[in-house]
Design a protein around this nucleic acid. Structure first.
Lengths: 112, 112
DNA sequence: TTCTTATGCATAAAAAACTTAGGTATTATA
DNA sequence: TATAATACCTAAGTTTTTTATGCATAAGAA
């Protein structure tokens, strides 16, 4: 993706989350959805997206279904059962990460 | 650092933030402070920390002051003026990133 | 007294995750 | 008829990290 270095590491979590909410999506659709959801703040590059999808599939978290639309090929991805589990733990991890970061950036003054 | 891939990219922002709040710190102190602030959730590795400090210094964001304590050498870092500016924009970027991520992970249902 | 842990710095090789820059092909639009 | 949008892909290069070292002093345990 473009934008900042901060996004590193969160791409596959984002993919898992979107697939959990939309049942099945194809790559290009994911890039557009992310742009829409983030009002253009986050743009996933294809060079990042496709390898990430392939890795998630290789890890058994996604399954593929091809579909031809307007004579163009779409590769629809959906979560496997393992993928759904993985999504849960990745989201938890992401939320813990955000809390941890908040604890540094926005530290609560100690009560002592 | 150890932990997860999510921390990628946020290390130098964390360093800048800590230096802004503590005036001057040395490397080892930073690792301990981060452990403390995050209750052990985040552990900065030295292999990540020192190169990051050197890069921030090379970029003109940090200045160094050596000090000998108990016959051990400490390298104290403090923000330059440019470093303080950089800290402000990095923190803004980090907060925007968190909001963006929240927008994906915890999307508000549209009112339409 | 000697080994381990803690303190304090550092770098180099490898891995991981990206960006950048290409490539192919179809359809819609200017 | 050229460009943009849709739809997939990969390879080279960059950046940032982990892992694995190395050196040195001080403190504490065996």
């Amino acid at each position: 993706m473009s934008n900042s270095k901060l996004y590193k590491g969160s791409l596959s979590t984002i993919i898992l989350k979107l697939l959990a909410e939309n049942n099945k999506m194809y790559g290009y659709e994911i890039t557009q959805k992310v742009k829409e959801l983030t009002q253009g703040e986050l743009t996933i590059t294809e060079g990042a997206l496709y390898p990430a999808l392939h890795k998630l599939e290789a890890d058994g978290f996604l399954e593929v279904e091809m579909q031809r639309v307007d004579n163009r090929l779409r590769k629809y991805y959906k979560l496997t059962q393992a993928g759904n589990q993985e999504k849960v733990s990745r989201i938890e991890e992401l939320e813990r990460f955000i809390e941890t970061i908040q604890g540094i950036v926005n530290p609560k003054p100690s009560l002592g």
